[in-house]
Design a protein around this nucleic acid. Structure first.
Lengths: 297, 297
DNA sequence: GACGCCTATTGCGTAAAACGCTATATTTGC
DNA sequence: GCAAATATAGCGTTTTACGCAATAGGCGTC
């Protein structure tokens, strides 16, 4: 069923005259006759009673006329609607990040963008930054805020937002296992410290590297998913943790812990936004990506 | 826009895979690809984001998917509806007849038919029987109950319902101009009688013929449209009228008038149903026509 | 009552378009 | 890095659609 058939039928049912209708449709009477035949075959119904001299609608024809008009109207409506939607970006963008990132970066990142593109909805998923890249690679989320790995997968595009340092944190309450001179680290003063580390992710890798350089196998008290939980456990006095400083700055438990200024310091790392290269073709993703580039000159 | 494009799009948006969708559509992947291109061209929008390895719906695609499903649903619905309507006759049948006919014939004519074809509505127009054939010939009404003329127009089909005689009627109240011996008519006793006749139609023609045979030019007191009004005027004592006996039999004023048994008697005539031959092709008209044939064995 | 006009329909030759096969480019997983 | 997967463009063939001209039938008119 082609919409041209509907147009032909409507014109015909308005004029009740094949010759005049064919002119209005910019076609020949024979084409119009065949259009109507095709329509009536598909519907297995007579829509227009006609002979060489008279043309009139059957009851079914009147009914079908309403259908045809509605259908063409709806077609015009969807065309206009889709054009409007294309002009104004719409759809969802899902972002995966840590709770900390949702506090610290996101507002700044999205506040302007939301005003500029009110048709776009954001779906925010928070969780352990260690999963961030996989969530993007698997397509579960469009974007993620994550520490930039040393060698990002080629399918991902990366954009730095800020740098942050990893820090050791200890409870402010006293504990006998606290290293006495964290500024000059010795192996033996760290061997008995109960450590609270990430299960995985860059902070864990950096911490492991740090201990290996010191020649120490740390006593791991707990492995935690999510940096925020590390702050909690350290604040409760369970041990010493390693977290990005930015997590500490945004933590409501910052008072319960203190930074241990160890030597050598843990490395800085980039925190940035990542996205699948191929999703950058999506207009709304591309728009956000570029908005991030142009932010804060 | 062809509905096949919509089907292709829906299958594609369900499977998100050109190969599998093409099998479901019983076509080739290249056809499917071109269907989608055509659709996107007509809509000037990207519906499906795709590369050699991934297929996904855009926001517009999701919106259009709803439209496409609705549209195909509506198409199936109208097909079913029209098929039902075709199985059960529907539409209007308009009938023109005199008030008398509407009392006397119509109930009998239509009562069974209405039960058998509840989808058909009747539009009843009453008026002077003299107009009946013209109403049908011009297409204003589908059918009419009318006296059968001596030579019916070739475009009309005719079917007798009953015979009726024309009668002279006079007021029951005395009047000096009343013919004293209607049974043996003489010219002079009729010349002064105030006659109340139809303006036109068969009853008028027959009356004229009757008077001409008698060699009398009647004194016409009033020319009336509609036999029922003749009974009224005669009942009020204005003169002598000529009406079909059946009108008298159905008149509430029958008590106010009496039949004059004139010699020679006015002729009988057929009262029947007429319809345009070409309208007999309409199923509902044909059904009624045949129901009339089979009525009352 | 025969003739001529009007008009929907059909036959047929041509034009267009749609289809499927194949090759290609590109991506992904091992 | 290689092989498998897959959407798409090119191209030859088939199918479909179009319009012209002829046909058939109804209707008004002389």
């Amino acid at each position: 069923m082609d919409f041209r058939l509907l147009k032909h039928f409507i014109t015909l049912s308005d004029t009740l005259h094949f010759g005049r209708a064919s002119e209005l449709c910019h076609t020949s009477p024979s084409t119009l006759s065949r259009s109507l035949q095709q329509l009536e075959n598909e519907l297995a119904t007579t829509l227009i009673e006609r002979d060489n001299r008279h043309v009139s609608l059957t009851p079914q024809g009147m009914h079908f006329q309403r259908y045809a008009r509605d259908t063409l109207d709806q077609w015009e409506t969807i065309k206009r609607t889709l054009a409007d939607e294309a002009a104004q970006l719409t759809g969802d963008i899902s972002i995966y990040c840590s709770v900390t990132a949702s506090y610290s970066f996101l507002y700044e990142l999205l506040s302007d963008f939301r005003l500029q593109h009110p048709g776009i909805e954001f779906k925010l998923h928070t969780g352990d930054p260690a999963n961030a890249m996989n969530r993007v690679l698997s397509g579960d989320d469009d974007m993620a805020i994550t520490p930039r790995p040393r060698t990002p997968p080629p399918a991902l595009a990366f954009k730095s937002l800020t740098r942050s340092s990893l820090v050791f944190i200890a409870p402010t309450s006293p504990a006998e296992w606290l290293p006495h001179t964290p500024e000059s680290s010795t192996a033996q003063q760290w061997e008995t410290v109960p450590m609270i580390l990430s299960e995985a992710g860059l902070s864990r890798e950096y911490a492991d590297t740090w201990f290996r350089a010191l020649g120490v196998t740390p006593r791991i008290y707990a492995q935690v998913a999510g940096h925020e939980a590390i702050v909690s456990m350290v604040g409760l006095g369970f041990g010493v943790g390693v977290v990005p400083k930015i997590v500490l700055d945004n933590s409501p438990l910052a008072e319960s812990v203190k930074i241990l200024h160890v030597k050598p310091e843990l490395p800085y790392y980039d925190v940035g936004l990542c996205v699948l290269n191929r999703r950058l073709k999506r207009p709304r993703i591309q728009a956000l990506w570029e908005a991030v580039s142009e932010r804060r000159p």
